[in-house]
Simulated assay, not measured.
Amino acid sequence: MDDAPLSGIRVLEFGHYIAGPFCSQILADQGADVIKVEPPEGDASRGTETLSYNDVYFHALNRNKRSVMLDLKSDGGQEALVTLLRTADVLVTNYAVGIPERLGFGYAQVREINPRLVYVHVSGFGNDSPYAKRPAFDGIIQAMSGLVHLTGEPDGMPMQAGLFVPDHVTGLYAALAAMFGLSRREGTGEGSFTDLSMLDSMMSLLGPCLAEALQLGVSPMRVGSKVRRSYAGTYTASDGYVYLAPMTLRMWTALTNVVEAPQLLPYFTDPDTDIRLDHRDELDRVIEKWTRAHPVADIVARLGEVGVPCSPIFTVDALAVDPHVQHRGMVRSIPLESGPGEVFVPGSPLPVIDTAYSAGPPSVGQHTGEILGTDPVPADLASQPD
């Protein structure tokens, strides 16, 4: 562990739900000592029933951390907070705007205690936004960011994504911000403050959509299971669904040969003449007539042989047993926090420390005595943010 990228770095996490814990989980995987500072009942997303939905979600975001329980409204809790802050390199929080200041760990307050601290505050809209005081969960940000508007069938209701995309994207940005802050500190010796907005994080994914809307006069719209401005999309097979992406002229020619539909060829005859999108519906009907007559495995195999990108639409359980996923170790297990047993969690796409999956989440306040030298935990060292 000594040669891990973040060996010797201590991170304080004042986090709940997803974005903050996901950020510090990434840092823990790289060897950081992550101390989860919790109220007496713990992170609001802790499960109360073993292997319930909340319980397994909490496990996926909080393994390999230590927990300290503090009452930040008490003198004892504030004294313990100062002790922790003096030893920390990074502080990550996704508490709502104003709560860190109310509980004594706003950036201006902690900078007086530890000017080298790298501080990352995740919130829905940021500290200086006109919406700063608005509550913002993942679905709110999906709705405001354009993600919901761009998801779903063209003539149907806008749809949320199937995963908590804004929470996780913002958690990734928060981990980057922590790393950038540590890098800057190497050169300047000073800490830093990053005011990270979930809405800003999602807007960074819009790519060309802003220019389309503001300069080209084309408001981006949802296209269902197709891909905007590219000839790719989802088709029905006899036993499921497949995703096809015949993007190039070579791929299109190969596809028309496999589906035995030479009438498709004239719509894409050279790289500078591609009129397929103008006739998408009629071309898709020809392609789907063929896919509907074949099982998924046959479609994937036959198109794969001729170099046309094609994939099954996996369910999560099918994905988990896929040879790539198994080979890359992307399904892992960690010990249950509540006792014997284990829970499956996603692996990390990055190289991680050897012990990354050997410890489950801590119980609430499990390491308070170990870290603060108070054992058992004093009663006035625990409360919750409000």
Rank of each mutant, 00 (worst) to 15 (best):
residue 226 K to N: 13
residue 227 V to Y: 10
residue 224 G to V: 09
residue 216 L to K: 08
residue 223 V to P: 00
residue 209 C to R: 11
residue 246 P to D: 02
residue 228 R to Q: 10
residue 217 G to V: 03
residue 218 V to P: 08
residue 226 K to W: 10
residue 225 S to A: 15
residue 248 T to E: 06
residue 238 S to C: 02
residue 208 P to D: 00
residue 226 K to A: 15
residue 220 P to R: 01
residue 214 L to W: 05
residue 222 R to D: 07
residue 220 P to M: 05
residue 229 R to G: 08
residue 249 L to I: 09
residue 217 G to S: 03
residue 247 M to K: 09
residue 250 R to L: 07
residue 223 V to Q: 09
residue 242 V to I: 11
residue 239 D to R: 07
residue 214 L to V: 05
residue 219 S to L: 15
residue 237 A to V: 04
residue 215 Q to V: 11
residue 217 G to Y: 00
residue 218 V to Y: 03
residue 230 S to K: 15
residue 236 T to K: 13
residue 251 M to Q: 15
residue 241 Y to I: 00
residue 208 P to A: 03
residue 249 L to Y: 07
residue 239 D to N: 11
residue 243 Y to A: 10
residue 219 S to K: 14
residue 248 T to A: 00
residue 235 Y to F: 15
residue 209 C to Q: 13
residue 242 V to T: 00
residue 231 Y to D: 01
residue 244 L to N: 01
residue 216 L to T: 05
residue 210 L to I: 11
residue 233 G to R: 05
residue 213 A to R: 09
residue 208 P to Y: 03
residue 215 Q to D: 13
residue 246 P to N: 05
residue 219 S to R: 15
residue 218 V to S: 12
residue 213 A to Q: 10
residue 231 Y to W: 15
residue 216 L to G: 11
residue 229 R to E: 14
residue 226 K to P: 01
residue 220 P to Y: 00
residue 249 L to P: 06
residue 247 M to R: 12
residue 212 E to T: 00
residue 222 R to G: 09
residue 233 G to T: 02
residue 250 R to T: 10
residue 214 L to F: 11
residue 220 P to E: 01
residue 214 L to Y: 08
residue 246 P to A: 04
residue 242 V to P: 06
residue 221 M to H: 14
residue 231 Y to T: 03
residue 226 K to D: 13
residue 230 S to H: 11
residue 228 R to D: 01
residue 243 Y to V: 12
residue 214 L to C: 07
residue 226 K to H: 13
residue 238 S to F: 11
residue 219 S to E: 15
residue 233 G to K: 01
residue 245 A to E: 02
residue 246 P to H: 03
residue 244 L to C: 03
residue 246 P to Y: 05
residue 215 Q to I: 14
residue 250 R to F: 07
residue 231 Y to P: 00
residue 217 G to H: 06
residue 249 L to R: 07
residue 238 S to G: 02
residue 249 L to M: 10
residue 240 G to S: 02
residue 233 G to M: 06
residue 241 Y to W: 13
residue 208 P to C: 04
residue 208 P to R: 02
residue 229 R to L: 15
residue 245 A to K: 03
residue 246 P to V: 06
residue 208 P to T: 06
residue 223 V to M: 08
residue 208 P to G: 01
residue 250 R to I: 07
residue 241 Y to D: 09
residue 238 S to I: 07
residue 251 M to T: 09
residue 249 L to H: 03
residue 238 S to M: 08
